[in-house]
Design a protein around this nucleic acid. Sequence first.
DNA 1: GCAAAAGTGTTAACAGTACACCCATGT
DNA 2: ACATGGGTGTACTGTTAACACTTTTGC
Lengths: 265, 265
Amino acid sequence: MDYDITKYDRPSVAADIVVFTLRRSDSESYRHLSKPVLSVLLVRRTEEPFKGMPALPGGFCCREETIEETAFRKLKEKTGVDSPPISLLCNLSRLGRDPRGWIISCCYWTVIEYTRAATDKNAQWYEVSLKEEGGRHTLVLTDDSGREYVSEVMMNNPNELYNQSAEAEIPENGLAFDHAEMIVSALLKLRSSLEKPYAAFRLLPERFTLTELQQVYEAILDRKLIMSNFRRKIAPYVEETGAIEGGAGHRPSKLFTRKDVSGQE
Amino acid sequence: MDYDITKYDRPSVAADIVVFTLRRSDSESYRHLSKPVLSVLLVRRTEEPFKGMPALPGGFCCREETIEETAFRKLKEKTGVDSPPISLLCNLSRLGRDPRGWIISCCYWTVIEYTRAATDKNAQWYEVSLKEEGGRHTLVLTDDSGREYVSEVMMNNPNELYNQSAEAEIPENGLAFDHAEMIVSALLKLRSSLEKPYAAFRLLPERFTLTELQQVYEAILDRKLIMSNFRRKIAPYVEETGAIEGGAGHRPSKLFTRKDVSGQE
DNA sequence: GCAAAAGTGTTAACAGTACACCCATGT
DNA sequence: ACATGGGTGTACTGTTAACACTTTTGC
Protein backbone atom coordinates (compact mmCIF):
# COMPACT_ATOMS: atom_id res chain seq x y z
CA MET A 1 0.00 0.00 0.00
CA ASP A 2 1.39 3.39 -0.94
CA TYR A 3 -1.04 5.21 1.29
CA ASP A 4 -2.10 4.34 4.78
CA ILE A 5 -5.20 6.44 5.27
CA THR A 6 -4.85 6.41 9.03
CA LYS A 7 -1.47 8.09 8.90
CA TYR A 8 -2.45 11.40 7.36
CA ASP A 9 -4.44 14.35 8.52
CA ARG A 10 -7.99 14.27 7.19
CA PRO A 11 -10.67 16.97 6.84
CA SER A 12 -14.22 16.79 8.05
CA VAL A 13 -16.58 16.76 5.10
CA ALA A 14 -20.00 18.38 5.23
CA ALA A 15 -22.84 18.49 2.74
CA ASP A 16 -24.79 21.74 2.53
CA ILE A 17 -27.88 22.07 0.43
CA VAL A 18 -29.60 25.07 -1.13
CA VAL A 19 -33.31 24.27 -1.38
CA PHE A 20 -35.55 26.64 -3.30
CA THR A 21 -39.32 26.65 -3.37
CA LEU A 22 -42.10 28.94 -4.54
CA ARG A 23 -44.66 30.20 -2.06
CA ARG A 24 -47.89 31.85 -3.12
CA SER A 25 -48.97 34.91 -1.23
CA ASP A 26 -52.65 35.13 -0.47
CA SER A 27 -54.85 36.22 -3.34
CA GLU A 28 -56.05 39.80 -3.11
CA SER A 29 -59.36 39.58 -4.96
CA TYR A 30 -61.60 36.89 -6.36
CA ARG A 31 -60.09 37.12 -9.80
CA HIS A 32 -56.54 38.26 -9.16
CA LEU A 33 -53.91 35.55 -9.42
CA SER A 34 -51.39 35.61 -6.61
CA LYS A 35 -47.73 35.85 -7.60
CA PRO A 36 -45.43 33.12 -6.30
CA VAL A 37 -42.37 34.18 -4.32
CA LEU A 38 -38.97 32.48 -4.64
CA SER A 39 -37.77 31.30 -1.24
CA VAL A 40 -34.84 29.42 0.22
CA LEU A 41 -34.76 27.09 3.20
CA LEU A 42 -32.52 28.21 6.06
CA VAL A 43 -31.95 26.97 9.58
CA ARG A 44 -31.20 29.26 12.48
CA ARG A 45 -27.99 28.17 14.17
CA THR A 46 -28.41 27.11 17.77
CA GLU A 47 -24.71 26.79 18.54
CA GLU A 48 -21.48 28.65 18.02
CA PRO A 49 -20.02 29.60 15.64
CA PHE A 50 -22.47 32.08 14.12
CA LYS A 51 -25.00 31.26 16.82
CA GLY A 52 -28.41 32.72 16.00
CA MET A 53 -27.64 33.39 12.35
CA PRO A 54 -29.42 31.72 9.44
CA ALA A 55 -27.47 28.99 7.67
CA LEU A 56 -28.05 26.41 4.98
CA PRO A 57 -29.26 23.02 6.18
CA GLY A 58 -26.48 20.49 6.08
CA GLY A 59 -24.34 18.20 8.13
CA PHE A 60 -21.32 15.97 8.28
CA CYS A 61 -20.84 12.92 6.12
CA CYS A 62 -20.78 9.44 7.59
CA ARG A 63 -18.91 6.46 6.27
CA GLU A 64 -22.09 4.57 5.46
CA GLU A 65 -23.48 7.09 3.00
CA THR A 66 -22.45 9.02 -0.07
CA ILE A 67 -22.28 12.80 0.15
CA GLU A 68 -25.56 13.01 -1.76
CA GLU A 69 -27.20 10.68 0.73
CA THR A 70 -26.02 12.95 3.51
CA ALA A 71 -27.72 15.87 1.77
CA PHE A 72 -30.89 13.79 1.29
CA ARG A 73 -30.95 12.76 4.93
CA LYS A 74 -30.42 16.28 6.23
CA LEU A 75 -33.16 17.62 4.00
CA LYS A 76 -35.54 14.94 5.25
CA GLU A 77 -34.69 15.81 8.85
CA LYS A 78 -35.28 19.52 8.37
CA THR A 79 -38.39 19.47 6.20
CA GLY A 80 -39.79 15.97 6.19
CA VAL A 81 -39.59 16.10 2.43
CA ASP A 82 -38.52 13.08 0.43
CA SER A 83 -35.52 14.03 -1.58
CA PRO A 84 -35.87 15.17 -5.14
CA PRO A 85 -32.80 14.89 -7.34
CA ILE A 86 -30.00 17.24 -6.28
CA SER A 87 -27.19 18.76 -8.31
CA LEU A 88 -23.64 19.53 -7.31
CA LEU A 89 -22.90 23.22 -6.98
CA CYS A 90 -19.37 23.67 -5.62
CA ASN A 91 -16.85 22.47 -3.07
CA LEU A 92 -15.64 25.09 -0.62
CA SER A 93 -12.44 24.17 1.15
CA ARG A 94 -10.57 27.33 2.08
CA LEU A 95 -8.95 26.83 5.46
CA GLY A 96 -10.54 29.31 7.82
CA ARG A 97 -14.00 29.16 6.25
CA ASP A 98 -15.13 27.36 9.40
CA PRO A 99 -13.58 28.41 12.74
CA ARG A 100 -14.01 24.91 14.13
CA GLY A 101 -11.18 23.59 11.98
CA TRP A 102 -10.49 21.95 8.65
CA ILE A 103 -13.94 21.47 7.20
CA ILE A 104 -14.72 21.01 3.54
CA SER A 105 -18.24 21.69 2.37
CA CYS A 106 -19.76 19.98 -0.65
CA CYS A 107 -22.66 22.15 -1.70
CA TYR A 108 -25.71 20.94 -3.63
CA TRP A 109 -28.92 22.59 -4.81
CA THR A 110 -32.44 21.53 -5.64
CA VAL A 111 -36.03 22.74 -5.81
CA ILE A 112 -39.09 21.26 -4.09
CA GLU A 113 -42.78 21.90 -4.14
CA TYR A 114 -43.75 24.13 -1.23
CA THR A 115 -44.54 22.48 2.06
CA ARG A 116 -45.29 24.31 5.26
CA ALA A 117 -44.39 21.18 7.20
CA ALA A 118 -40.82 21.86 8.25
CA THR A 119 -40.29 19.26 10.96
CA ASP A 120 -37.43 21.23 12.44
CA LYS A 121 -38.73 24.26 14.31
CA ASN A 122 -35.63 26.26 13.40
CA ALA A 123 -36.10 25.70 9.68
CA GLN A 124 -37.81 28.56 7.88
CA TRP A 125 -38.37 29.76 4.34
CA TYR A 126 -36.78 33.10 3.44
CA GLU A 127 -37.86 35.21 0.48
CA VAL A 128 -35.01 35.64 -2.01
CA SER A 129 -34.11 38.75 -3.95
CA LEU A 130 -30.93 39.22 -5.97
CA LYS A 131 -29.57 42.33 -7.67
CA GLU A 132 -26.46 42.36 -9.82
CA GLU A 133 -24.28 45.23 -10.91
CA GLY A 134 -20.90 44.67 -12.50
CA GLY A 135 -20.12 41.34 -10.84
CA ARG A 136 -21.35 42.63 -7.48
CA HIS A 137 -24.34 40.56 -6.34
CA THR A 138 -26.55 41.81 -3.55
CA LEU A 139 -28.58 39.05 -1.95
CA VAL A 140 -31.48 40.04 0.26
CA LEU A 141 -33.29 37.35 2.27
CA THR A 142 -36.47 38.21 4.15
CA ASP A 143 -38.04 36.07 6.82
CA ASP A 144 -41.76 35.89 7.59
CA SER A 145 -41.53 38.63 10.18
CA GLY A 146 -40.07 40.99 7.59
CA ARG A 147 -36.51 41.01 8.89
CA GLU A 148 -33.93 41.36 6.14
CA TYR A 149 -30.56 39.63 5.82
CA VAL A 150 -28.28 41.33 3.31
CA SER A 151 -25.12 39.85 1.77
CA GLU A 152 -22.71 41.13 -0.86
CA VAL A 153 -21.05 38.54 -3.08
CA MET A 154 -18.48 39.30 -5.76
CA MET A 155 -18.67 36.88 -8.66
CA ASN A 156 -17.63 37.54 -12.23
CA ASN A 157 -17.65 34.04 -13.53
CA PRO A 158 -20.41 31.91 -11.98
CA ASN A 159 -18.73 28.73 -13.23
CA GLU A 160 -15.57 29.22 -11.30
CA LEU A 161 -16.47 30.09 -7.76
CA TYR A 162 -13.73 28.30 -5.93
CA ASN A 163 -12.68 29.67 -2.63
CA GLN A 164 -11.19 32.80 -4.15
CA SER A 165 -13.50 34.94 -2.10
CA ALA A 166 -11.70 36.94 0.53
CA GLU A 167 -12.40 36.30 4.18
CA ALA A 168 -14.94 39.07 4.29
CA GLU A 169 -16.37 40.22 7.58
CA ILE A 170 -19.80 38.75 8.11
CA PRO A 171 -22.18 41.53 9.22
CA GLU A 172 -24.73 41.30 11.99
CA ASN A 173 -27.62 40.78 9.58
CA GLY A 174 -25.72 38.34 7.35
CA LEU A 175 -25.55 34.59 6.89
CA ALA A 176 -23.36 32.05 8.65
CA PHE A 177 -20.13 30.81 7.05
CA ASP A 178 -19.82 31.33 3.29
CA HIS A 179 -23.41 30.33 2.73
CA ALA A 180 -24.38 33.60 1.04
CA GLU A 181 -22.14 32.88 -1.92
CA MET A 182 -23.54 29.37 -2.14
CA ILE A 183 -27.05 30.75 -2.42
CA VAL A 184 -26.10 33.30 -5.06
CA SER A 185 -24.30 30.65 -7.05
CA ALA A 186 -27.24 28.25 -6.71
CA LEU A 187 -29.73 30.84 -7.89
CA LEU A 188 -27.66 31.57 -10.98
CA LYS A 189 -27.53 27.84 -11.70
CA LEU A 190 -31.26 27.51 -11.17
CA ARG A 191 -31.86 30.34 -13.61
CA SER A 192 -29.68 28.90 -16.31
CA SER A 193 -31.26 25.48 -15.77
CA LEU A 194 -34.60 26.93 -16.85
CA GLU A 195 -33.54 26.67 -20.46
CA LYS A 196 -35.24 23.31 -20.00
CA PRO A 197 -38.39 23.24 -17.81
CA TYR A 198 -37.54 20.21 -15.67
CA ALA A 199 -36.72 22.15 -12.51
CA ALA A 200 -39.90 24.18 -12.95
CA PHE A 201 -41.99 21.00 -13.09
CA ARG A 202 -40.69 20.02 -9.68
CA LEU A 203 -42.13 23.24 -8.28
CA LEU A 204 -45.64 22.43 -9.49
CA PRO A 205 -48.20 19.71 -8.82
CA GLU A 206 -48.65 16.88 -11.29
CA ARG A 207 -51.21 18.90 -13.24
CA PHE A 208 -50.85 22.64 -13.75
CA THR A 209 -51.93 25.49 -15.99
CA LEU A 210 -49.52 27.08 -18.41
CA THR A 211 -49.89 30.37 -16.57
CA GLU A 212 -48.73 28.69 -13.38
CA LEU A 213 -45.71 27.34 -15.23
CA GLN A 214 -44.99 30.79 -16.61
CA GLN A 215 -45.24 32.27 -13.12
CA VAL A 216 -42.58 29.83 -11.97
CA TYR A 217 -40.27 31.13 -14.68
CA GLU A 218 -41.08 34.75 -13.91
CA ALA A 219 -40.48 34.33 -10.17
CA ILE A 220 -37.10 32.66 -10.69
CA LEU A 221 -35.86 34.85 -13.53
CA ASP A 222 -37.30 37.93 -11.85
CA ARG A 223 -38.79 39.36 -15.05
CA LYS A 224 -41.98 39.32 -17.08
CA LEU A 225 -42.26 36.96 -20.03
CA ILE A 226 -44.52 37.28 -23.07
CA MET A 227 -47.20 34.63 -22.90
CA SER A 228 -47.37 33.45 -26.48
CA ASN A 229 -43.60 33.19 -26.83
CA PHE A 230 -43.35 31.31 -23.58
CA ARG A 231 -45.98 28.82 -24.67
CA ARG A 232 -44.25 28.09 -27.92
CA LYS A 233 -40.99 27.51 -26.09
CA ILE A 234 -42.32 25.01 -23.56
CA ALA A 235 -44.87 23.36 -25.89
CA PRO A 236 -42.60 20.35 -26.64
CA TYR A 237 -42.33 19.53 -22.93
CA VAL A 238 -45.99 19.55 -21.88
CA GLU A 239 -49.20 17.83 -22.93
CA GLU A 240 -52.87 18.45 -22.26
CA THR A 241 -54.62 16.27 -19.73
CA GLY A 242 -58.09 17.07 -21.06
CA ALA A 243 -59.06 18.43 -17.65
CA ILE A 244 -60.10 22.04 -17.17
CA GLU A 245 -59.78 24.28 -14.17
CA GLY A 246 -62.65 26.75 -13.73
CA GLY A 247 -64.13 28.62 -10.81
CA ALA A 248 -62.13 31.81 -11.22
CA GLY A 249 -63.45 35.11 -12.53
CA HIS A 250 -62.21 34.47 -16.05
CA ARG A 251 -61.98 31.93 -18.81
CA PRO A 252 -61.18 28.47 -17.42
CA SER A 253 -57.74 27.11 -18.19
CA LYS A 254 -56.62 23.76 -19.49
CA LEU A 255 -54.60 21.58 -17.17
CA PHE A 256 -51.32 20.29 -18.55
CA THR A 257 -48.79 17.75 -17.40
CA ARG A 258 -45.15 17.17 -18.21
CA LYS A 259 -44.48 15.25 -21.40
CA ASP A 260 -41.74 12.65 -21.43
CA VAL A 261 -39.27 13.69 -24.05
CA SER A 262 -36.42 11.41 -25.02
CA GLY A 263 -33.04 12.36 -23.62
CA GLN A 264 -34.67 13.85 -20.59
CA GLU A 265 -33.45 15.87 -17.65
CA MET B 1 -19.15 23.81 20.25
CA ASP B 2 -21.72 21.46 18.86
CA TYR B 3 -19.18 19.51 16.89
CA ASP B 4 -15.75 18.40 17.96
CA ILE B 5 -14.11 17.52 14.70
CA THR B 6 -11.66 15.21 16.34
CA LYS B 7 -14.38 12.98 17.71
CA TYR B 8 -15.90 11.73 14.50
CA ASP B 9 -14.74 9.47 11.76
CA ARG B 10 -13.43 11.42 8.79
CA PRO B 11 -12.82 10.46 5.16
CA SER B 12 -9.66 10.97 3.17
CA VAL B 13 -10.28 13.49 0.41
CA ALA B 14 -8.54 13.27 -2.93
CA ALA B 15 -8.55 15.56 -5.94
CA ASP B 16 -8.48 13.87 -9.35
CA ILE B 17 -8.13 15.83 -12.53
CA VAL B 18 -9.06 15.05 -16.12
CA VAL B 19 -6.66 16.94 -18.37
CA PHE B 20 -7.35 17.00 -22.09
CA THR B 21 -5.03 18.20 -24.81
CA LEU B 22 -4.80 18.05 -28.58
CA ARG B 23 -1.82 16.43 -30.20
CA ARG B 24 -1.00 16.85 -33.87
CA SER B 25 0.11 13.80 -35.72
CA ASP B 26 2.98 14.34 -38.15
CA SER B 27 2.00 15.88 -41.44
CA GLU B 28 1.90 13.44 -44.34
CA SER B 29 2.73 15.74 -47.22
CA TYR B 30 3.88 19.28 -47.75
CA ARG B 31 0.37 20.61 -48.10
CA HIS B 32 -1.73 18.23 -46.08
CA LEU B 33 -2.82 19.60 -42.73
CA SER B 34 -2.43 17.14 -39.90
CA LYS B 35 -5.51 16.43 -37.83
CA PRO B 36 -5.23 16.99 -34.08
CA VAL B 37 -6.09 14.10 -31.79
CA LEU B 38 -7.94 14.50 -28.50
CA SER B 39 -5.91 13.00 -25.67
CA VAL B 40 -6.14 12.63 -21.93
CA LEU B 41 -3.34 12.57 -19.38
CA LEU B 42 -3.07 9.35 -17.37
CA VAL B 43 -0.52 7.99 -14.91
CA ARG B 44 0.37 4.34 -14.66
CA ARG B 45 -0.12 3.15 -11.09
CA THR B 46 3.04 1.94 -9.43
CA GLU B 47 1.37 0.53 -6.32
CA GLU B 48 -1.64 -1.51 -5.31
CA PRO B 49 -4.55 -1.24 -5.76
CA PHE B 50 -4.83 -1.43 -9.54
CA LYS B 51 -1.05 -1.65 -9.84
CA GLY B 52 0.04 -1.19 -13.43
CA MET B 53 -3.24 0.24 -14.63
CA PRO B 54 -3.68 3.77 -16.00
CA ALA B 55 -5.34 6.25 -13.64
CA LEU B 56 -6.09 9.93 -13.52
CA PRO B 57 -3.44 12.12 -11.93
CA GLY B 58 -4.50 13.19 -8.48
CA GLY B 59 -3.69 13.01 -4.83
CA PHE B 60 -4.78 13.65 -1.31
CA CYS B 61 -5.69 17.05 0.05
CA CYS B 62 -3.60 18.74 2.71
CA ARG B 63 -4.80 21.15 5.31
CA GLU B 64 -2.79 24.03 3.87
CA GLU B 65 -4.46 24.06 0.47
CA THR B 66 -7.89 24.13 -1.09
CA ILE B 67 -9.01 21.14 -3.14
CA GLU B 68 -8.37 23.14 -6.30
CA GLU B 69 -4.85 23.90 -5.16
CA THR B 70 -4.31 20.19 -4.62
CA ALA B 71 -5.36 19.59 -8.21
CA PHE B 72 -3.06 22.37 -9.43
CA ARG B 73 -0.13 20.99 -7.48
CA LYS B 74 -0.63 17.44 -8.70
CA LEU B 75 -0.90 18.61 -12.28
CA LYS B 76 2.31 20.56 -11.93
CA GLU B 77 4.09 17.54 -10.46
CA LYS B 78 2.96 15.22 -13.24
CA THR B 79 3.38 17.46 -16.25
CA GLY B 80 5.35 20.53 -15.21
CA VAL B 81 2.47 22.59 -16.57
CA ASP B 82 1.33 25.73 -14.80
CA SER B 83 -2.28 25.35 -13.97
CA PRO B 84 -4.94 26.73 -16.22
CA PRO B 85 -8.39 27.29 -14.68
CA ILE B 86 -10.09 24.05 -13.68
CA SER B 87 -13.78 23.25 -13.34
CA LEU B 88 -15.54 20.98 -10.89
CA LEU B 89 -16.90 17.81 -12.43
CA CYS B 90 -18.29 15.59 -9.67
CA ASN B 91 -17.69 14.19 -6.21
CA LEU B 92 -17.51 10.41 -5.99
CA SER B 93 -17.99 9.06 -2.51
CA ARG B 94 -19.48 5.57 -2.71
CA LEU B 95 -17.94 3.44 0.00
CA GLY B 96 -16.02 0.69 -1.74
CA ARG B 97 -14.92 2.80 -4.67
CA ASP B 98 -11.40 2.61 -3.25
CA PRO B 99 -10.31 -0.62 -1.55
CA ARG B 100 -7.99 1.28 0.78
CA GLY B 101 -10.91 2.66 2.77
CA TRP B 102 -13.21 5.64 2.99
CA ILE B 103 -11.90 7.92 0.28
CA ILE B 104 -13.86 10.68 -1.37
CA SER B 105 -12.71 11.97 -4.72
CA CYS B 106 -13.36 15.50 -5.90
CA CYS B 107 -12.95 15.41 -9.65
CA TYR B 108 -12.04 18.39 -11.83
CA TRP B 109 -11.37 18.87 -15.53
CA THR B 110 -9.42 21.23 -17.73
CA VAL B 111 -7.65 21.54 -21.06
CA ILE B 112 -4.05 22.57 -21.73
CA GLU B 113 -1.96 23.27 -24.75
CA TYR B 114 0.05 20.21 -25.68
CA THR B 115 3.37 19.68 -24.02
CA ARG B 116 5.56 16.66 -24.43
CA ALA B 117 7.28 17.54 -21.19
CA ALA B 118 5.59 15.28 -18.71
CA THR B 119 8.04 15.45 -15.85
CA ASP B 120 6.76 12.22 -14.35
CA LYS B 121 7.94 9.24 -16.40
CA ASN B 122 4.73 7.38 -15.68
CA ALA B 123 2.55 10.16 -17.08
CA GLN B 124 1.45 9.64 -20.68
CA TRP B 125 -1.07 11.02 -23.10
CA TYR B 126 -3.74 8.58 -24.30
CA GLU B 127 -5.81 9.10 -27.42
CA VAL B 128 -9.52 9.36 -26.57
CA SER B 129 -12.43 7.93 -28.52
CA LEU B 130 -16.02 7.78 -27.28
CA LYS B 131 -19.04 6.03 -28.79
CA GLU B 132 -22.54 6.33 -27.39
CA GLU B 133 -25.59 4.16 -27.96
CA GLY B 134 -28.68 4.52 -25.82
CA GLY B 135 -26.95 5.73 -22.67
CA ARG B 136 -24.18 3.19 -23.07
CA HIS B 137 -20.85 4.95 -23.54
CA THR B 138 -17.84 3.06 -24.80
CA LEU B 139 -14.58 4.80 -24.00
CA VAL B 140 -11.47 3.67 -25.82
CA LEU B 141 -8.10 5.03 -24.76
CA THR B 142 -5.01 4.26 -26.84
CA ASP B 143 -1.46 4.76 -25.69
CA ASP B 144 1.48 5.57 -27.94
CA SER B 145 2.35 1.91 -28.41
CA GLY B 146 -1.15 1.27 -29.75
CA ARG B 147 -2.45 -0.62 -26.75
CA GLU B 148 -6.16 -0.04 -26.15
CA TYR B 149 -7.98 0.39 -22.85
CA VAL B 150 -11.72 -0.09 -23.16
CA SER B 151 -14.36 0.95 -20.61
CA GLU B 152 -18.13 0.81 -20.65
CA VAL B 153 -19.98 3.53 -18.75
CA MET B 154 -23.74 3.76 -18.39
CA MET B 155 -24.94 7.33 -18.17
CA ASN B 156 -28.34 8.65 -19.15
CA ASN B 157 -28.16 12.04 -17.56
CA PRO B 158 -24.67 13.52 -17.69
CA ASN B 159 -25.63 16.14 -15.08
CA GLU B 160 -26.41 13.65 -12.39
CA LEU B 161 -23.61 11.19 -12.23
CA TYR B 162 -23.47 10.59 -8.54
CA ASN B 163 -22.20 7.28 -7.38
CA GLN B 164 -25.14 5.39 -8.78
CA SER B 165 -22.86 3.28 -10.89
CA ALA B 166 -22.76 -0.32 -9.81
CA GLU B 167 -19.54 -1.78 -8.54
CA ALA B 168 -18.70 -3.13 -11.94
CA GLU B 169 -15.83 -5.48 -12.42
CA ILE B 170 -12.83 -3.65 -13.82
CA PRO B 171 -11.40 -5.63 -16.72
CA GLU B 172 -7.74 -6.32 -17.37
CA ASN B 173 -7.50 -3.61 -20.01
CA GLY B 174 -9.53 -1.04 -18.07
CA LEU B 175 -8.83 1.95 -15.88
CA ALA B 176 -8.18 2.11 -12.16
CA PHE B 177 -10.97 2.99 -9.72
CA ASP B 178 -14.00 4.75 -11.21
CA HIS B 179 -11.83 6.92 -13.40
CA ALA B 180 -13.43 5.80 -16.64
CA GLU B 181 -16.74 7.40 -15.74
CA MET B 182 -14.94 10.57 -14.73
CA ILE B 183 -13.34 10.80 -18.16
CA VAL B 184 -16.61 10.17 -19.98
CA SER B 185 -18.35 12.77 -17.88
CA ALA B 186 -15.53 15.26 -18.42
CA LEU B 187 -15.58 14.78 -22.17
CA LEU B 188 -19.32 15.43 -22.28
CA LYS B 189 -18.78 18.61 -20.26
CA LEU B 190 -15.95 19.68 -22.50
CA ARG B 191 -18.16 19.20 -25.53
CA SER B 192 -21.04 21.19 -24.15
CA SER B 193 -18.62 23.91 -23.03
CA LEU B 194 -17.73 24.48 -26.70
CA GLU B 195 -20.91 26.47 -27.15
CA LYS B 196 -18.50 29.24 -26.20
CA PRO B 197 -14.93 28.97 -27.55
CA TYR B 198 -13.01 29.72 -24.35
CA ALA B 199 -11.85 26.16 -23.72
CA ALA B 200 -10.78 25.89 -27.36
CA PHE B 201 -8.61 29.00 -27.01
CA ARG B 202 -6.68 27.31 -24.22
CA LEU B 203 -5.75 24.52 -26.64
CA LEU B 204 -4.16 26.94 -29.10
CA PRO B 205 -1.25 29.37 -29.07
CA GLU B 206 -1.89 33.08 -28.65
CA ARG B 207 -2.28 33.51 -32.40
CA PHE B 208 -4.01 30.90 -34.54
CA THR B 209 -5.76 30.43 -37.85
CA LEU B 210 -9.50 29.90 -37.99
CA THR B 211 -8.92 26.48 -39.49
CA GLU B 212 -6.88 25.49 -36.46
CA LEU B 213 -9.70 26.66 -34.22
CA GLN B 214 -12.18 24.68 -36.28
CA GLN B 215 -9.97 21.59 -36.00
CA VAL B 216 -10.08 21.92 -32.23
CA TYR B 217 -13.87 21.83 -32.39
CA GLU B 218 -13.90 18.92 -34.81
CA ALA B 219 -11.49 16.85 -32.75
CA ILE B 220 -13.48 17.36 -29.55
CA LEU B 221 -16.95 17.02 -31.03
CA ASP B 222 -15.77 14.15 -33.26
CA ARG B 223 -17.52 15.44 -36.37
CA LYS B 224 -16.96 17.65 -39.39
CA LEU B 225 -18.19 21.24 -39.30
CA ILE B 226 -19.04 23.46 -42.25
CA MET B 227 -16.42 26.17 -42.53
CA SER B 228 -18.52 29.20 -43.30
CA ASN B 229 -21.07 28.43 -40.59
CA PHE B 230 -18.34 27.86 -38.07
CA ARG B 231 -16.73 31.18 -38.88
CA ARG B 232 -19.94 33.08 -38.44
CA LYS B 233 -20.49 31.45 -35.09
CA ILE B 234 -17.10 32.25 -33.60
CA ALA B 235 -16.66 35.63 -35.29
CA PRO B 236 -17.74 37.61 -32.21
CA TYR B 237 -15.01 35.97 -30.12
CA VAL B 238 -11.95 36.47 -32.35
CA GLU B 239 -10.18 39.36 -33.99
CA GLU B 240 -7.57 39.65 -36.74
CA THR B 241 -4.00 40.35 -35.74
CA GLY B 242 -3.01 41.60 -39.18
CA ALA B 243 -0.37 38.89 -39.38
CA ILE B 244 -0.44 36.24 -42.08
CA GLU B 245 0.87 32.70 -42.05
CA GLY B 246 2.26 31.48 -45.34
CA GLY B 247 4.71 28.81 -46.40
CA ALA B 248 2.19 26.05 -47.05
CA GLY B 249 1.09 24.83 -50.43
CA HIS B 250 -2.01 26.97 -50.53
CA ARG B 251 -3.39 30.43 -49.91
CA PRO B 252 -1.86 31.92 -46.74
CA SER B 253 -4.17 32.29 -43.78
CA LYS B 254 -4.81 35.21 -41.49
CA LEU B 255 -3.79 34.85 -37.87
CA PHE B 256 -6.43 35.62 -35.31
CA THR B 257 -6.44 36.07 -31.57
CA ARG B 258 -9.15 35.87 -28.94
CA LYS B 259 -11.26 38.95 -28.56
CA ASP B 260 -12.22 40.09 -25.09
CA VAL B 261 -15.97 40.06 -24.95
CA SER B 262 -17.78 41.44 -21.93
CA GLY B 263 -19.17 38.82 -19.57
CA GLN B 264 -16.40 36.45 -20.47
CA GLU B 265 -15.64 32.84 -19.65
C1' DG C 1 -70.86 45.21 -18.77
C1' DC C 2 -66.27 44.60 -17.25
C1' DA C 3 -61.97 43.19 -15.39
C1' DA C 4 -58.94 39.47 -15.51
C1' DA C 5 -56.86 35.86 -17.36
C1' DA C 6 -56.90 32.13 -21.33
C1' DG C 7 -55.55 31.48 -25.66
C1' DT C 8 -54.35 32.38 -30.92
C1' DG C 9 -52.22 34.73 -34.84
C1' DT C 10 -48.99 37.82 -37.40
C1' DT C 11 -44.83 39.97 -38.38
C1' DA C 12 -39.91 41.03 -38.43
C1' DA C 13 -35.36 39.94 -36.88
C1' DC C 14 -32.01 36.71 -36.02
C1' DA C 15 -29.36 32.33 -35.84
C1' DG C 16 -28.44 27.82 -37.82
C1' DT C 17 -27.84 24.83 -42.04
C1' DA C 18 -26.32 23.33 -46.42
C1' DC C 19 -24.18 24.36 -50.38
C1' DA C 20 -21.84 26.80 -54.31
C1' DC C 21 -18.25 29.40 -55.68
C1' DC C 22 -13.75 32.02 -56.11
C1' DC C 23 -8.75 32.95 -54.25
C1' DA C 24 -3.83 32.20 -53.39
C1' DT C 25 -0.04 29.28 -52.96
C1' DG C 26 4.26 25.71 -53.34
C1' DT C 27 5.52 22.15 -55.73
C1' DA D 1 -1.52 22.87 -63.71
C1' DC D 2 -3.29 21.32 -59.74
C1' DA D 3 -4.37 19.86 -55.34
C1' DT D 4 -5.16 21.95 -51.02
C1' DG D 5 -6.75 24.77 -47.87
C1' DG D 6 -8.39 29.98 -47.26
C1' DG D 7 -12.20 32.70 -47.66
C1' DT D 8 -17.02 34.78 -49.11
C1' DG D 9 -21.84 34.71 -50.44
C1' DT D 10 -26.58 33.04 -50.79
C1' DA D 11 -30.82 30.78 -50.18
C1' DC D 12 -33.59 28.04 -46.90
C1' DT D 13 -35.13 26.96 -42.38
C1' DG D 14 -36.38 27.33 -37.70
C1' DT D 15 -36.38 29.99 -33.49
C1' DT D 16 -37.09 34.23 -30.84
C1' DA D 17 -39.24 38.65 -29.84
C1' DA D 18 -42.80 41.96 -29.77
C1' DC D 19 -47.32 42.97 -30.27
C1' DA D 20 -52.38 42.76 -31.57
C1' DC D 21 -56.33 40.43 -31.16
C1' DT D 22 -60.28 37.16 -29.65
C1' DT D 23 -62.49 34.12 -25.97
C1' DT D 24 -64.53 32.89 -21.61
C1' DT D 25 -65.71 33.39 -17.16
C1' DG D 26 -67.68 35.36 -12.13
C1' DC D 27 -69.24 39.03 -10.19
